[in-house]
């Protein structure tokens, strides 16, 4: 039985939608496929301004990190981005160990992540 789930919410900033993916549980080699499918659904629906909210994400392995990596380039080429918010210290540490903060905007709150899309538009 999977101990991982993804749910979706829609917000907006500057009149444009931002889609928030709430991750819950443990993202590992077994559950990475669910996260991959969730991101693929977003891309298929044309949603490319994405915030991954990690407050309830308790664990991430390299398989989970690989999913971020698999989508980030195509999403940016489509004019969007994946921003990451509210990670627990243990999970942030894994991103940090591999230098992923150099590639992804990782911020403390969901609001901050959403606002980054507005500031990116106006930059």
């Amino acid at each position: 039985m999977s101990n991982f789930s993804v749910s979706f919410r829609e917000r907006s900033t500057d009149g444009l939608p931002v889609h928030v993916l709430d991750l819950t549980g443990e993202l590992d080699a077994h559950t990475a496929g669910e996260f991959e499918a969730a991101l693929q659904n977003c891309v298929d629906a044309g949603h490319t301004r994405l915030v991954v909210h990690g407050r309830d994400l308790q664990y991430i392995s390299s398989a989970g990190l690989g999913v971020f990596m698999a989508f980030v380039e195509s999403i940016r080429e489509a004019g969007g981005d994946i921003k990451i918010a509210a990670l627990q210290p243990r999970v942030f540490n894994v991103f940090d160990l591999l230098g992923f903060p150099l590639l992804f905007q990782i911020v403390e709150t969901e609001d901050e992540a959403v606002e980054r899309f507005a500031s990116a538009e106006s930059a």
């Binding site: 392995s61 390299s62 990190l65 690989g66 990596m69 698999a70 980030v72 591999l98 230098g99």
Partner: peptide
């Protein structure tokens, strides 16, 4: 090298780095 992997947006191979670092 990690920098190469990140620059090339590699999807696999990070597990070995994690094992070494942890």
């Amino acid at each position: 090298a990690l920098t190469t992997m990140r620059d090339q947006r590699r999807i696999h191979g990070y597990g070995l780095h994690l094992m070494q670092r942890l």
